[in-house]
């Protein structure tokens, strides 16, 4: 589904990713761990197509097609979803209305009819129930004034509505308390299937107790320096990253 081939990427002329390679098949869950500043968020932004992040060499291939110069909107419509580490606050834009616009944009892209506010409301209620979200969030402004945990939950709500093929969740677990983590993780698990894939960026083994990864990677200095199974995550939790970097 996704092939990242020796990608070098810069922001503000500083090279952050230095030869990143990763392959993700449909149905798989990958976890990316790594010290602060190693390039995890940069990886997610490069995948989502952030205009400030420039891929200087290497290639990202999604479902057989290069993502080179593909706009963020187009990537989203093709089925890539990024859950932000720090979701942007958008004052003045109503959460439910925004979600419906995004949902309809995807439907139009798929050649389907748009849904009206009434039908969408039902769908949204159902998704919000799974995530145990208070219905008041429908009428609130997008991420505006939400607590850290509320923002993360709202990211997963968006994922649930858009049902992406590939989701990259950047530290979705940070900011969630234990109960919220369990609810959100269950929500994410429901969206897993043989046709889609998940990349979880996390610092904590905790999340991986709920969502079992098939592969765990350690990112350091803009490259993957070690890959393994879930036991690698356990090892990292015990020992930190130092033993790997040496």
């Amino acid at each position: 589904m996704l092939k990242i081939q020796d990608v070098h990427a810069s922001v503000a002329d500083i090279e952050i990713l230095k030869g990143l390679s990763l392959e993700v098949q449909a149905g798989e869950v990958h976890a990316i761990m790594g010290p602060n500043g190693s390039g995890k968020s940069t990886t997610s932004k490069v995948l989502a197509g952030h205009p400030s992040y420039e891929v200087t060499s290497g290639e990202v291939i999604f479902e057989g097609e290069s993502l080179h110069e593909v706009e963020p909107q187009e990537r989203a419509l093709r089925g890539i979803f990024m859950g932000f580490q720090y979701p942007t606050e958008i004052p003045g834009v109503n959460n439910a209305q925004f979600l419906r616009m995004a949902y309809n944009a995807k439907r139009v892209h798929q050649g389907l009819d748009e849904v009206d506010a009434f039908d969408f409301d039902e769908l949204l209620d159902e998704k919000m129930k799974v995530l145990e979200m208070n219905p008041v969030f429908k009428e609130r402004m997008l991420n505006s004034g939400y607590s850290g945990g509320e923002k993360k939950r709202n990211e997963i709500l968006q994922m649930a509505v858009l049902e992406p093929k590939l989701a990259i969740l950047d530290e979705t677990d940070s900011g969630l308390d234990i109960d919220a983590l369990r609810i959100v993780a269950e929500g994410i698990n429901r969206l897993k299937g043989p046709d889609n894939a998940l990349i979880l960026i996390t610092h904590y083994q905790r999340l991986l107790d709920y969502i079992k990864p098939d592969h765990v990677h350690v990112l350091s200095g803009g490259r993957i320096i070690r890959s393994g199974g879930q036991d690698l995550a356990l090892e990292l939790e015990k020992q930190g990253y130092d033993w790997l970097e040496k």
Binding site: G49, P51, Q73, A76, L77, M82, G92, A105, L162
Partner: peptide
């Protein structure tokens, strides 16, 4: 960018903002 990553075009995103 945030709105674009949800499948809205740049123009629609700007207008929404």
């Amino acid at each position: 960018f945030y709105l674009e990553t949800r499948g809205l075009s740049q123009e629609v995103s700007m207008n929404l903002l």
